[in-house]
Simulated scan of single mutants.
Amino acid sequence: MRIDKFLKLARVIKRRTLAQEMIEIGAVRVNGKVVKASKEIQPGDVVEVAFPSRVVSFKVLPFEEKELKRGARPFDVLEERKVNPDEKPWND
């Protein structure tokens, strides 16, 4: 499944278009690398999402699309830290 769709269905980001915008500016990383919205996500991948005031890292668990649509939580949070919005955490 594409990372933009995964972020929306997993309820990490509310809209797929917003996920695509965040990916485009480099605020989403998979396994430490900046990716494109078309990146296929796999169980075991570590995803980092930089929101304006916090950065969340999580590990993707095995999932099925229909379970995601029903509200299953397909990841384990590894770390969540607050950041200063002026620092733009996605630029490091």
Rank of each mutant, 00 (worst) to 15 (best):
M1F: 09
M1S: 13
R2D: 13
I3G: 00
D4T: 03
D4K: 00
K5N: 06
F6Y: 04
F6K: 01
L7Y: 03
K8C: 08
L9F: 13
L9H: 07
R11H: 14
R11P: 14
R11E: 09
V12A: 04
V12C: 08
I13G: 02
K14M: 08
K14D: 10
K14F: 11
K14C: 12
R15F: 10
R15K: 15
R16G: 03
R16S: 10
R16C: 03
T17C: 05
L18M: 14
L18A: 09
A19G: 11
A19D: 11
Q20F: 01
E21R: 13
E21Q: 15
I23E: 02
I23T: 03
I25K: 13
A27C: 03
V28F: 01
V28A: 05
R29E: 12
V30N: 05
N31K: 11
K33F: 06
V34Q: 10
V35L: 01
V35S: 01
V35P: 00
V35Y: 00
V35T: 01
K36A: 06
K36S: 05
K36R: 09
A37N: 01
A37G: 00
S38N: 10
K39C: 09
I41P: 12
I41S: 08
I41E: 12
Q42F: 11
Q42R: 14
V46Y: 04
V47K: 09
V47S: 08
V47W: 09
V47R: 02
V47E: 08
V47T: 11
V47G: 03
E48L: 15
E48Q: 12
E48A: 14
V49G: 05
A50E: 04
F51D: 13
F51Q: 10
F51G: 04
P52W: 11
P52N: 11
P52R: 10
S53L: 12
V55F: 07
V55C: 04
V56Y: 02
S57H: 05
S57M: 05
S57W: 10
S57Q: 15
F58R: 04
K59G: 02
K59Q: 15
K59V: 14
K59W: 03
V60L: 05
L61H: 09
F63D: 02
F63N: 01
F63Q: 01
F63T: 03
E64P: 07
E64H: 14
E64D: 13
E67T: 03
L68Y: 07
K69G: 01
R70F: 12
G71Y: 02
G71M: 02
R73W: 03
R73F: 12
R73D: 06
P74I: 00
V77Y: 05
V77F: 01
E79Y: 10
E80G: 06
R81P: 00
R81G: 02
R81M: 08
R81H: 00
R81Q: 03
R81V: 13
R81W: 02
K82N: 06
K82V: 14
V83N: 08
V83D: 07
V83R: 06
V83S: 06
V83A: 11
V83F: 08
N84F: 06
N84S: 13
N84M: 08
P85K: 11
P85Q: 12
D86G: 15
D86V: 11
D86C: 07
E87M: 10
P89A: 15
P89V: 04
W90I: 01
D92P: 07
